[in-house]
Structures are given as structure tokens and as C-alpha cells.
């Protein structure tokens, strides 16, 4: 047997090209713990839905108080949703003047024409969004130019619709995120990460939703109902979807970062 000393005699290092062994990405399956999956799904949905339901009245009460303080001329009312009494405060809104509506109609029509014309230098995905925004304003201003008196909503209806929308978002976040994040069952850490993600999303949503409500209420008061369709169709649930997906991607990144160090704990082979 040769000792370590003889090893030293041939200690020259020779580099050779590392063979490329393509890992079998095509056959990967994630490690799955069905009990942890069920537990996560049930626990996350039940706990967070319970929290949402528990704090729902308090949240809208707090929002109502803040709105009343910030927006002058606000009045307070409440809306009965199932067994909840949801309070809100809102200042009186106003209808647009004919002149205002006409200006919006003109601007939105010209914008639409420009956006679909060949002179539009903007990228198509930006144009697509601008077309949508201009279209919503076109329909809204067209309505107010020709059917001003038939506008079916008041600021009170807006507040109620907003409350419903925000409640929907609150109820929706735990379900959507629990369904999509419970898939990762590599360790108990997943449960913790997923719970933090849902909690953060709900917190974000309550702050974002509250601010949005105040800005919208102020807009209806100062800049008229002509903006109301945009509030639902442009800055409504579609926008909520962005931060929900953003939190999902953040959680996914953390999951990968924390667990991909040990690939064997992460993947198994489907074939």
C-alpha cells in the first residue's frame, strides 16, 4: 500500500473537460406529501377565511372612520351583507357636466383613433392597454353625453359595490394562494412560508384597498362619476390580481431558494 507521502509525489493537477451530463428535467416530479398538502390547503383556507370574516366588520369600520376624517362632507351608512353589517363613509359624488363629458368623449375618441392608426409608434402591448383604457372612457363619456340623467348609480351604490369587491378580494386571496401554494410540500417550512405569503397579501390588500377607496371616493366627489367605470374595469379586481401573483412568485422564489440546495429533497423521477 502506498502512503500519503507517495501521493504527494504526483500532486500535479491535470484539468480535463467536465462531461456534460444533461439532467433529466423532462422526467422530474416534485416530491409530494399528500397529508401536508391536505393539511396546508385546509389549514390555510380555514384559518385565513376565519380571520377575514372575523375582521371584516372592523376593517370597514376603520376604513369608514379614516375616510370620514380625510374626506370632508362624508356621511356614514352601512350595508348588510349576509349577517355582516359593513359600515362605510363617502362624500357626495357629482355627475359630470355636459362640457366635461364632451371633452372626455373627444379625447377618448381621438386617442382610440390614434392608437389604432398606423401612425401609432407605441409597442403593441402598451397600445392594447391604452386602447382598453380609452375604450372604457369612450363608453363612459358617450353615456354621459347622451344619457346623463339615466345614470343608475349614486356614490352610495359605488360604496356598496366597492365593499363587495373588496370583500371578494379578501375571501378570494386565501383560496387562490392556498390552492396554488399548497402544491409545494417539501417540508413544514412550506406551510410557514405559505402562511406568511397569504398574511402579507391580505395585509397588502387591506392597505391598498383602503387607499384605493379613498382615492376613488375623492375622485367621484371632485372629478365626477365619469370615472366610475374605470374604477371597476381598470383599477378593480384586475389590479388586485397583480399583487396576488406577485406574492405568489415571491413565495415560489423563497421555496426554490430554501429547498433547491438539496435537489434530492425537491425532485423525484417520474420516468
Amino acid at each position: 500500500m502506498k502512503s500519503m507521502a507517495s501521493k504527494q509525489a504526483y500532486s500535479k493537477i491535470f484539468e480535463v473537460e467536465k462531461p456534460v451530463i444533461g439532467y433529466a428535467r423532462f422526467g422530474r416530479v416534485l416530491k409530494f406529501n399528500k397529508y401536508l398538502f391536505m393539511l396546508q390547503l385546509t389549514l390555510l383556507v380555514v384559518v385565513f377565511e376565519f380571520l377575514v370574516i372575523f375582521f371584516l366588520e372592523d376593517y370597514f369600520k376603520a376604513l369608514s372612520d379614516i375616510t370620514r376624517k380625510i374626506l370632508e362632507g362624508s356621511y356614514t351608512a352601512s350595508y348588510k351583507f349576509l349577517s355582516f353589517k359593513l359600515e362605510y363613509s363617502i362624500p357626495h359624488g357629482r355627475l359630470p357636466t355636459l362640457q366635461e363629458s364632451f371633452i372626455y368623449l373627444l379625447v377618448s375618441s381621438l386617442s382610440l383613433l390614434f392608437l389604432i392608426s398606423r401612425f401609432n409608434p407605441l409597442s403593441k402591448y402598451i397600445s392594447a392597454w391604452l386602447i382598453y383604457i380609452a375604450f372604457v372612457y369612450f363608453v363612459s363619456s358617450f353615456y354621459f353625453v347622451f344619457f346623463l340623467d339615466s345614470f343608475p348609480y349614486t356614490e352610495r351604490d359605488f360604496a356598496v359595490l366597492y365593499i363587495l369587491q373588496q370583500t371578494g378580494v379578501f375571501l378570494f386571496i386565501p383560496i387562490l394562494l392556498a390552492l396554488s401554494l399548497s402544491l409545494f410540500t417539501f417540508s413544514w417550512l412550506n406551510l410557514l412560508l405559505n402562511a406568511i405569503t397569504i398574511a402579507l397579501s391580505l395585509m397588502y390588500s387591506s392597505v391598498f384597498g383602503g387607499l384605493r377607496y379613498i382615492v376613488f371616493a375623492y375622485t367621484l366627489k371632485s372629478f365626477s362619476y365619469i370615472h366610475m367605470p374605470a374604477m371597476f374595469f381598470l383599477f378593480g379586481p384586475l389590479i388586485d390580481f397583480i399583487y396576488i401573483v406577485s406574492f405568489y412568485s415571491l413565495c415560489l422564489y423563497m421555496t426554490i431558494k430554501l429547498l433547491q440546495r438539496r435537489q434530492e429533497a425537491f425532485y423525484q423521477w417520474g420516468f
Partner: peptide, 19 residues
Amino acid sequence: LVLDGSKEKVFLLPLMFLE
């Protein structure tokens, strides 16, 4: 993306909204 072994690519998910 997890199956593919991607990492930071997951951050692009919210940008799908642009499409």
C-alpha cells in the same frame, strides 16, 4: 418553472398582466 429548475424567472409572472 420549478420543474425546469428555474429560479428568478418566477419573478416575471406578474408581467404576464401586460399581455
